[in-house]
Amino acid sequence: MEFVRPDSIEAAVAALQADGAACLAGGATLVAMMNADLVAPDRLVSLRDVAALRDAIRRPDGTVVIGAMRRHRETAEETDLRDGQRVLSEAAAQIANPPVRNMGTIGGSCAFADPAADYPPALLAADARFALIGAVGRRTVPAGDFFLDWYETALEPGELIEAVILPPAPAGTVGSYTKLARVAGDFAIASVALVLGMDGGACTHLAVAVGACGPAPVRRRDVEAELIGGGLGDAEIRRLTDALAEAFDPVDDVRASADYRRRVAPRMVRQALVEAQQRLSETL
């Protein structure tokens, strides 16, 4: 095994082109797997010294670009995330525990793509895009096309996540993240990320993504679109939760049964939407 610590993004990409090379970000997942003898990359490319990956920038239009090496604690405390974008900081604050939040990065978490992780649904609800860079250059991929299957993403071999791009959330929207876990800091049994805007009882913005209920986070843009412009009462919420539930594909695991996930996630969505509406009406 070889260890390299490039100090530029270009050098990192170059180092990644070898067979069996892997990025080392926070190490919270990768080193744990190495300790358990589950993986042994031939080359570890530490991204520690690539300064550009550590920043978060808010552009004048409200777009926020978060470097892949931004740690969970920093994202949790990120004041540049505003309105509905706060869904991401709420999610970051609920990952693991303080020492792990001091280590883990948004790039590492998304690249690993644990279906029970907290960022994937939050990013999907925030309409985020991934900025990727590889030997052939840069490209961006919407979150909905990035998380493909169990632990599988759109990353090509030799490609790395450079940043996560959050579009501006419409002013006055609210973002929230709700997680059900066995104990504090555990991976989710199920989680709900949402961004909501209401104007005098009518829904102006609606994005709901559910985590841990299938190989990738689940969102029903088709139904969301139908609900825009109307109220968001029991019946409307029911339409959305029914549609989401149709798209769930959960499994039984040590955290909970698939059956429970199917039943509890719609209840969590309903509760989260009710609470988000309350939050909106309180801020008016």
Binding site: A36, N97, R182, V183, A184, G185, D186, V254, R255
Partner: peptide, 27 residues
């Protein structure tokens, strides 16, 4: 409330602290 060694036949399915959950200071 939370602790259970889950068996898959004779085999322990959650032999790690990641999968077996004891209360933290927040629980």
């Amino acid at each position: 409330l939370t602790e259970e060694m889950v068996f898959d036949g004779p085999r322990l399915a959650n032999p790690s602290m990641m999968d077996y959950k004891a209360p933290t200071s927040l629980d």
